[in-house]
Simulated scan of single mutants.
Amino acid sequence: MTLAFPNPTRSFDATRNAVRFLGHDGMVEVRFFIEASALGGAGPRGGADLTEDECLSAFDRLRSTIQAVALKAYAGRRLESYTLTTTQMR
């Protein structure tokens, strides 16, 4: 099977300072996180300066790019969860 993102739900995880979203490989749910720093931001700490609402809005704007990066991260490896970073988003 291939990874798909049929559920547009996403949430902010304050502990990880990341946005959580889900993919599905058949019946298997795959958890993804994207670090706030990978979502951008103009402050001196980059995305670390973004509020929860700004992170979620940035995720929504970048959704197709984020999902493409998630597909690459998922290819060939099966982990419990995946964390996307600034380096992967470049």
Rank of each mutant, 00 (worst) to 15 (best):
Glu52Leu: 01
Ser64His: 09
Asp60Lys: 11
Val19Gln: 05
Gly41Asn: 09
Ala14Gly: 13
Leu50Pro: 02
Glu35Asp: 11
Gly40Glu: 01
Val28Thr: 15
Met27Trp: 06
Leu50Phe: 06
Asp49Pro: 00
Asp13Leu: 05
Arg31Gly: 11
Thr15Lys: 12
Ile66Gln: 01
Gln67Tyr: 10
Ala75Trp: 00
Gly41Ser: 05
Gly46Ala: 12
Arg20Gln: 14
Asp60Asn: 13
Ala48Lys: 13
Ala58Pro: 02
Ile34Glu: 00
Phe33Arg: 04
Cys55Glu: 01
Ala42Thr: 13
Ala18Asp: 03
Ala14Phe: 03
Leu62Glu: 14
Val19Pro: 09
Ser57Met: 09
Ala36Cys: 11
Arg63Val: 08
Arg10Pro: 00
Arg63His: 02
Gly26Phe: 06
Ser37Cys: 12
Arg10Cys: 14
Pro44Leu: 14
Gly41Leu: 12
Asn17Lys: 15
Val19Lys: 07
Arg61Glu: 15
Ala14Ile: 09
Asp25Lys: 15
Gly43Phe: 08
Ala75Val: 07
Ile66Leu: 02
Gly23Gln: 05
Gly47Pro: 08
Ile66Asp: 00
Pro44Gln: 10
Gly40Phe: 05
Thr51Glu: 05
Glu29Leu: 11
Leu39Met: 01
Gly26Arg: 13
Leu39Asp: 05
Glu35Leu: 10
Ala75Asn: 09
Met27Gln: 14
Ala58Thr: 01
Phe21Ala: 02
Ala70Ser: 04
Asn17Thr: 08
Arg20Met: 09
Ile34Asn: 06
Gly26Lys: 10
Asp49His: 05
Phe12Asp: 02
Gly40Ile: 01
Leu22Ser: 10
Gly47Met: 06
Val69Leu: 03
Thr15Trp: 01
Glu29Ala: 15
Arg45Ile: 02
Arg10Ile: 13
Leu56Ile: 03
Asp60Arg: 05
Gly46Lys: 08
Leu22Thr: 07
Asp53Phe: 03
Arg45Pro: 00
Ala14Asp: 12
Val28Trp: 11
Asp60Glu: 14
Gly47Lys: 03
Asp13Met: 03
Arg63Ser: 09
Ala58Tyr: 07
Phe33Trp: 15
Ala58His: 12
Ser57Gly: 10
Gly41Asp: 12
Val30Cys: 12
Asp13Val: 11
Asp53Trp: 06
Leu39Asn: 07
Phe12Pro: 05
Phe33Leu: 15
Gln67Met: 08
Arg20Val: 04
Pro44Lys: 14
Ser64Pro: 00
Asp49Lys: 06
Phe33Cys: 02
Gly41Pro: 08
His24Asn: 03
Gln67Ala: 00
Ala68Arg: 14
Ile66Trp: 04
Leu56Pro: 07
Ala73Gln: 14
Asp49Val: 00
His24Ser: 10
Arg45Asp: 14
Phe32Ser: 11
Glu29Trp: 03
Ala68Leu: 13
Met27Asp: 15
